[in-house]
Simulated assay, not measured.
Amino acid sequence: VENGYQGCIMVPTEILAQQHFETLTEYLGKQGLRVELLTSSVKKAKRREILENLELGEIDVLVGTHALIQDDVVFARLALVVTDEQHRFGVDQRAKLSNKSQFAPDILVMTATPIPRTLALTIYGDLDTSMMQGKPVGRKPIETLCYIGEKRNAVYAGLVRQVQAGHQAYVVCALIDESEGVEARSATEVYTELQATYLKNISCALLHGRLKNQEKEEIMSRFAAGEIKVLITTTVIEVGVNVPNATLMIIENADRFGLAQMHQLRGRVGRGKDQSYCVLLTDNDNHETLERLQVLRDSDNGFFLAEKDLELRGAGQLFGLRQHGLPDLYIADILQDIGVLIEARELAKKAFQNPQMLREIESALSSQFDERFQRIFYS
């Protein structure tokens, strides 16, 4: 901005956008910089004013949701593009934002999801990567507990005690509704059950991905304001939710979640000064399941947990739709062969500097991966 350019930050939810807007206004407003917020909730007159000032270069930093990639959003001199929780956006969406500038903007992508180093090299090999580790000052470690189903009543009695002490809580379920093919307690089922029993006189709400955006935002705003004490939800609260008064996270059927995902969910509590707890509930008491959950109980290192998850569940496809299971590598082991992976990357960089070899590589990859190659290679 001091050099006469603009910056923007795109996030997946309106609540997170509001949080970033308030933080940046506090930091940058003192320097006399103008920060604006653009989401689908912005009224037409205000939106028109923002777009006009943005194109004139009078707005220094724009914070927003997917609204930033609409065709009528035009920057005067965009030079820095930040995408937070970048895994929630498609490749094309991120590219569309950076393509709004003729100045080849610098790009920063951020995620709170720990990624194993081996996968980070594969997926983000063309980026300089930085890892921020440790907790903000003043936060206490979250105590993680693991119980089988017979302790469920005691766990929910503990939930009531937390609310009576003035705190809030999350109950996370793997499914929205019951499914014949999956043995797991759904969010709808748990919500109905708790409303009639433990939460009979306690304000609670059901939150999941099928609700309209406006409904989701309203529920989250009421939870953040302390009006709702307990949120029964799916993994939609995995990112961008900051409620320091929430001190308890109960994960139903924890065996159905990945370690890294539960670590991400666990991060929704422990954001204030009070001691927080994460309770893993499972009806599956076989040794292998309990041993895996104990890994999460004993560690709060997200990168260690991500590596362990990769080891236990497999990496999924690098070029495809499958999110877990065996990767596209037929011989190499993505965990054990890190040295070979790095060497292959260096050789690939050299090959790309040879125009003839580059043409041959493009031809081979195009025939192997069809239009997926074009989308990945040129984004």
Results as ranks from 00 to 15, higher is better:
Q294D: 12
L296C: 05
K46L: 01
S221L: 12
I15C: 02
V109I: 12
E291A: 07
R210M: 15
A348H: 06
E311T: 06
E150W: 13
Y330P: 12
R372K: 11
C8W: 01
E22I: 03
L207A: 06
R256N: 09
F377T: 07
R266K: 07
A67I: 06
A184P: 01
T235P: 08
V163S: 13
L341F: 02
N99H: 06
L347G: 02
A344N: 07
V63H: 00
A351Q: 03
F89I: 13
Q275N: 09
L358W: 01
N301V: 07
L51Y: 11
E58R: 07
L37W: 11
Q275M: 05
Q368H: 09
V42H: 04
A76L: 11
R271D: 11
E143K: 15
F377I: 13
D337F: 02
V35T: 09
G314M: 09
E215F: 02
Q102I: 06
V109Q: 05
P327Y: 01
D285K: 11
L80V: 14
T129K: 07
E193T: 06
A260H: 07
G138R: 02
G4M: 09
D177V: 07
L80P: 10
Y277S: 13
Q195M: 14
A17I: 01
K273P: 13
L259E: 10
D106Q: 10
I59Q: 07
Q86H: 08
L28G: 12
V279R: 00
Q70N: 11
F103S: 04
H66W: 04
Y147H: 14
Q294K: 13
G272K: 09
F369D: 15
R94W: 02
E178S: 11
Y191T: 11
E150G: 08
K44G: 13
L335A: 11
D309R: 02
E307D: 13
N245E: 13
G4R: 15
K216V: 04
D337C: 02
V236H: 01
A246K: 10
E178V: 02
E180P: 05
E22A: 14
T25H: 10
H263N: 14
I59G: 02
L347Q: 14
L33F: 11
A95Y: 08
G90Q: 06
D71G: 05
T118D: 15
F223T: 12
T23F: 08
D106M: 15
K151A: 12
I251M: 10
N242T: 14
E217G: 03
Q18P: 04
H208Q: 02
G57I: 00
G226H: 02
A348T: 05
A224T: 14
H263C: 10
P12T: 03
Y147C: 08
E55S: 15
L145D: 12
K212W: 06
L145G: 08
P136Y: 04
P355E: 13
R34A: 13
L199C: 05
Q214W: 06
G134N: 10
T282C: 13
F303L: 01
F352D: 04
R271G: 09
L206T: 11
G32T: 00
L290N: 05
A154R: 14
L248M: 12
I123W: 06
A196L: 12
Q86R: 08
V11E: 09
G90C: 10
Q374H: 13
T13H: 09
Q356F: 12
G29S: 05
Q264C: 08
L329D: 10
T188E: 15
V163N: 14
V172L: 07
I237W: 01
E217P: 06
L127T: 14
V239P: 01
S366E: 09
E362V: 12
S186F: 00
A174N: 12
